[in-house]
Amino acid sequence: MTPENLSELANKIRRRDLQAVFEAGAGHIGGEMSVTDLLTALYFKIMQVEPQNPSAPLRDRLVLSKGHTALALYVVLAEKGFIPTEEISTFLQHNSRLNGHPNRMKVPGVETNTGPLGHGLPVGVGMAKAAQLNGESWRTFVITGDGEMQEGSNWEAIMAAAQFKLDNLTLIIDHNRLQQGARLAETNNLAPLAPKLEAFGWAVQEIDGHDMDQICTALSAESITHGKPKCIVAHTNKGHGISFMSDNVAWHHKVPNEEQYKQAMAELEGAMA
């Protein structure tokens, strides 16, 4: 798919995500809007996965460590063919397998349960190490939030990945500058992130996390540095694509009312007109 095709698909995924949040009356729409371009590029351009065989041994793995944005992942998995597209309408309903955080025992394509922040990268390091030990070429990708990088477990994993020279591991930090209830700068400001990862022995690249050309180039196998794990600091906007949500801390898990929903949907539809 071309970058233009991927952007169109990401916009479609945002619209379906917005509809599902509105209908369910719950969700984490701000972070879902910021991570959608990254997920779209991974599943429709970069990763080698088989929707009809989600446990294929040589598949690439994605760990969505910021598990509260599970709905964005569900919509992407549905578009890719892992689950029926109509199942998105069951999000958060009684007995639905589409919970507020992803569950690998219930949803095909989910690699590990996430939600408690700081767990996904350590798991990803273990996955990448397993591939290295077995001499296999599949890749592991982990997406974290920037607020999540305040968790000490991430930095232990960062040290381990550098020590093991896991160049089959890519960490993507969704750097939208906001976390639940506050700005990153107001809590425990880790920015700038890139020099910190570099100091731990990682190859680091900073990109516009909404520019498909930059995303695909940074994620490509050709961008790997031999012997070094890679970190992509993706500069994004929480609530991206929706004027009143963009860069607004209130929309971490706020739900739009009917008027806001109609405005947001109109803005997303107009973006690709």
Rank of each mutant, 00 (worst) to 15 (best):
E4R: 13
E4W: 15
L6C: 13
E8S: 05
L9H: 00
A10C: 05
R14I: 06
R15W: 00
A20Y: 08
E23V: 00
G25I: 04
H28S: 01
V35T: 14
V35S: 15
L38G: 07
Y43T: 06
Q48F: 03
P51N: 01
P51E: 00
N53D: 14
N53I: 07
A56S: 09
R61S: 12
L64A: 09
G67M: 08
T69Q: 12
T69C: 14
L71K: 10
L71E: 04
Y74N: 06
E79D: 03
F82M: 07
F82I: 01
F82A: 04
F82D: 09
I83R: 03
I83M: 03
P84T: 05
T85G: 00
T85L: 10
E86N: 01
E86M: 01
F91N: 00
L92Q: 12
S96K: 07
L98I: 00
L98C: 09
L98Q: 07
N103D: 15
N103T: 00
K106M: 12
V110L: 02
T112I: 08
N113C: 12
N113W: 04
L117W: 09
G124Y: 04
V125S: 07
V125N: 06
G126W: 05
A130G: 03
E136A: 03
V142W: 11
I143Q: 08
T144W: 12
T144M: 14
G145M: 06
G147M: 02
G147K: 02
G147P: 12
G147E: 01
G147C: 07
G152P: 08
S153D: 11
E156T: 02
I158A: 15
A160R: 11
K165N: 03
K165Q: 03
L166Y: 04
D167W: 02
D167A: 00
L169E: 01
I173V: 15
N176Y: 07
N176C: 10
N176T: 05
R177N: 06
R177H: 12
Q179G: 08
G181R: 00
G181H: 03
R183Y: 14
A185Y: 03
A185P: 00
E186F: 09
T187R: 14
N188H: 06
N188K: 09
N188S: 13
A191E: 10
A191Q: 09
P192L: 02
L193K: 04
L193F: 14
A194C: 02
L197M: 12
L197K: 02
A199E: 02
G201I: 08
W202N: 10
A203H: 13
A203M: 02
V204L: 04
I207Y: 02
G209C: 06
D211S: 10
D211A: 07
Q214G: 06
Q214W: 11
I215T: 10
C216A: 01
T217W: 05
A218R: 08
A218W: 00
A221P: 11
S223C: 09
I224N: 10
I224R: 14
P229Y: 07
K230S: 09
K230M: 05
V233A: 05
V233W: 00
G239C: 09
I242C: 11
F244R: 11
S246L: 03
S246Y: 04
S246V: 05
D247Y: 09
V249I: 14
A250H: 11
H253K: 02
P256I: 12
E258F: 14
K262R: 14
Q263Y: 06
Q263G: 10
Q263S: 13
A264C: 13
M265I: 03
M265F: 10
E267K: 14
L268S: 11
G270N: 14
A271N: 13
